[in-house]
Nucleic acid binder design. Structure first.
Lengths: 226, 226
DNA sequence: AACGTGATTTGACCTCGATCAAACAATTTT
DNA sequence: AAAATTGTTTGATCGAGGTCAAATCACGTT
């Protein structure tokens, strides 16, 4: 695995990400100082539970799945990160040990930001500390949202909720393309692929059309009621 | 509802909590400046989803349950906080809006730390920012742990995992008292009370004895294998 | 266009945990 | 101590979703 320096496109993705949007150029440069990039094939493991990890990661292209392993080898997805998202920041606060596994979905480019450096900079620049707190908070919320949905909603309801999350507020009719295979969506929603498929077909009766990765909504209301 | 100043016992609980343990006396005092205390009866609501919240909370005595509401009125617990734990810090980073409900379990004493003040102090004292990051990280982890357990473990396995979490590493035999009603434990584990009861009786065959709130383990190994 | 591989759907079956009802136990109240 | 209230357990039933197998579908290759 070759590790490269950031090229200008990599840098643009990083600086365009939510994490960097509130940071001064000086703070951003200081963080990116010494950042490296690696390329990964589908299914490559980025880090594993309990392993030492001394970076915070950012998806520059592709997709990353973060998951835990059960005793029996089954996997539970914690989150899926698209291009422009930071992840793996938890290890930074827990003795540099990963608390989950991370795997590339499809071929992906990943940036690594040195976490020692980042921690030091957070003491110097209050903005960086603030950005880190917001990152941690968002990720915490994501997990809480998932937990609440798992406990409160049925499979079709979770799928409806996912779809609605991609549908702008005003429109009653809307269509979009899934950003990944149904496979991956199923994992993210805590479902077996078969259950996702059945959920889609249950939603068909409420005006949802699915063709390949294209999703069409004909009646937002009906979906919200579901 | 009367709001009081911190008395010396309140202050001791706060300063003894995990959040304050790494902070200088100056930083701690600055945070506690202007903190207030309220007393609550069983089932009192401390805050509700989407409501404005401008404090971070700390349990001084009693117990607090944080949960989300489903469309149908069902409730899903996100976390349960015992004496000495801070909670409700998420609102501070999300426009001062609560993303969940919080309710006293049994009569409880709650401290409120002004979040505007805390945010300002976090810019001044890197230690406070650091403590906040660790708090956010721990709470994020708690949610991720729950999510993974929900998705990977059966009810008896989740209960076994809960019990093992209270059992020191060395011992094969061990006993402890549940810190709350089974009722509450069931909610925390995402189970109906009946399912918790059945889980306990399934574990009886693996050397777990339950009498009221007392739990006895006779064979740690067996429990880990479960 | 015919193949081959992998993704998705469908069908059949089965397990886990929710729900409702009732029995039972442990409290608090009177 | 008896009564009343609240918490816990047990039984019976049911539905959601997992699993396995087979059928289809979708695509990139030849």
């Amino acid at each position: 695995m070759k590790t490269l320096r950031l090229n200008s496109n990599d840098k643009a993705v990083l600086l365009g990400s939510r994490f960097f949007e509130t940071l001064s150029a000086a703070a951003s440069d200081a963080i990116l100082e010494g950042a490296v990039v690696t390329n990964h094939e589908e299914h490559d493991i980025l880090f594993q539970q309990d392993e030492p990890v001394d970076s915070v990661f950012c998806v520059l292209s592709g997709l990353v799945r973060v998951y835990r392993l059960g005793k029996d080898g089954r996997e539970a997805d914690i989150a899926v990160f698209p291009k422009g998202e930071l992840f793996g920041e938890n290890a930074m606060f827990l003795g540099n040990r990963a608390t989950a596994n991370a795997q590339a979905i499809g071929s992906s480019t990943i940036a690594r930001l040195d976490s020692r450096n980042l921690r030091k900079l957070a003491e110097q620049y209050p903005d960086i500390a603030q950005a880190l707190m917001e990152l941690l908070c968002r990720h915490g919320q994501m997990a809480e949202d998932c937990l609440a949905e798992d406990r409160l909603l049925t499979a079709p309801q979770r799928v409806a909720s996912y779809i609605l999350g991609h549908c702008p507020d005003g429109s009653t009719t809307f269509s979009f393309r899934l950003p990944f295979q149904k496979n991956v969506l199923a994992g993210k929603l805590g479902l077996a692929p078969e259950a996702l498929s059945r959920a889609f077909s249950a939603l068909r009766r409420s005006g949802v059309t699915v063709k390949g990765r294209m999703i069409e909504i004909h009646d937002r209301q009906a979906l919200e009621r579901f």
